[in-house]
Simulated scan of single mutants.
Amino acid sequence: MKVISAVINNIETDQRVDKVCNSLLKFGYDVELIGTTLRGKPTLNKEYKTSLIPMKYQVGFKSYAEFNFKLFVNLLIKADKNCILLANDLDSLLPFYLVSKIKKLPLVFDSHEIYSELPSLHNRPTTKKIWKSLERFLLPRVKYFYTVSNGYANWFKKEYGSNPEVIRNVPHLQKLNDTENLIFFKLPQVPENHKIVLYQGALNMSRGLEYMIEAMLYVENCVFWIAGDGPKRNELEKLVQDFKLDHKIFFLGNVPPKILKTITPLAEVGISLEQDLGISYKYALPNKVFDYFQAKVPILSTYLPEIKATIEHYDAGRVITKHDAKHIAEELNILLKEGKKSYHERLSKAAQECCWENEEPKLKAIFEQIKKVD
């Protein structure tokens, strides 16, 4: 059987979608992933088939409308009777749902977040209402549904009566020699006897980075690397300049996943300081947490429930109680003093348990269930 999936964001760097598509390929499905040229043309170099929707509009409502219309047309042309449709997130679900009804095809939905509760909608009530209406109409009508955390699953069940499976966004188990063949990437020079603190991920609102940058005023013999890009980058760079911390804080920009996997183990501490700005962040369980596990890097984490529970379950770092620069610095200094070697055994256990190899069977079971019904 064929599986057609799609995502509006960059198919070159979306690790979850790539893992799912590669797993489905391994299970024996003919896989095609449809991406877009939104904010640039990604490289199409995958084991499975890929194609791109050319985008005229790059931001705002028009870009979503264009994507949904063109995706609908693409799916009508490409989907046949031996096809399973796989939608990623609410922004692609409507065309998948319509084509599944028109052609009587099974539909699977992977919700990476709670779209109607994203922080970006916090001050946009009209846009939020539109996404909420779509959620309310579509989600109760989707039979095969999975998401990334227990918090998300419980919320969807309470809000819409849905009962999604939980398939966490975790990396593949990293072998001991995975970081031996380093790929060239220019890194900042680290002064002798200084340790590296790392943040990896998008530079969006509510990531706690403003507090972390200020906290570096109170942390000695340490540099802070920020691997990622996003709309907050200029603001964060200005903050670094205002605090005169250019010698301690460095922006690495977007780092390809294969290269990032070789950089993360260099860190002494990994950062995940998300703030509670909306339900989608409150119950998030970001993949960076599990990337730190695989790299055997202890974590300074937020108090948000899913992340906190994961860190405390494995005793894999320290959890802040508030977003305050001095408090963050105090907790970070404790972690740096303890050293990552003291966490190695616990992180090894976390890495063994929190890997894609343990989530993959749940994905296979969903698609096998569809084949049996079919």
Rank of each mutant, 00 (worst) to 15 (best):
S116G: 07
H122T: 11
T127N: 04
R136Y: 11
T126G: 02
V108H: 07
R124Q: 14
P140A: 13
S120R: 08
S111K: 02
P119S: 06
H112C: 09
E135D: 10
E113S: 07
L138P: 05
P140R: 12
L139V: 14
L138V: 05
L138I: 07
Y115C: 01
P140G: 10
Y115H: 11
S120D: 08
Y115G: 10
K132A: 13
E135S: 03
F137K: 07
L107V: 06
R136S: 14
L134H: 01
E135H: 04
K129G: 06
T127S: 14
R136E: 14
R124E: 13
K129L: 11
E117C: 09
W131L: 08
K128R: 15
F109Y: 15
D110A: 08
H122D: 12
E117K: 11
S120G: 00
T126V: 15
E117W: 05
P140Y: 12
I114Y: 05
V108D: 08
F137G: 03
T127C: 01
V108E: 02
E117G: 01
I130D: 05
P140I: 12
S111M: 02
I130L: 13
L107R: 04
S120C: 11
R141F: 06
F109Q: 08
F137A: 10
W131Y: 15
F109N: 01
R141E: 15
N123G: 00
V108L: 06
H112Y: 09
E117P: 01
R124G: 00
L134F: 12
F109G: 04
P140E: 13
W131S: 03
L138T: 08
P119T: 03
H122E: 15
K128A: 14
S133E: 06
P125D: 08
L134D: 00
I130E: 03
I114P: 04
P119M: 09
L107N: 08
S133A: 13
L138F: 10
S120F: 10
L138H: 07
L139Y: 15
T127D: 10
L138E: 04
K132Y: 13
H122Q: 14
V108F: 12
I130K: 03
S111L: 08
F137M: 11
F109A: 11
V108Q: 09
F137I: 14
L134I: 14
S120T: 12
Y115S: 00
H122F: 13
R136K: 15
K128I: 03
S120I: 14
S116T: 07
L138K: 06
R124Y: 10
R136Q: 11
T126C: 03
L107H: 07
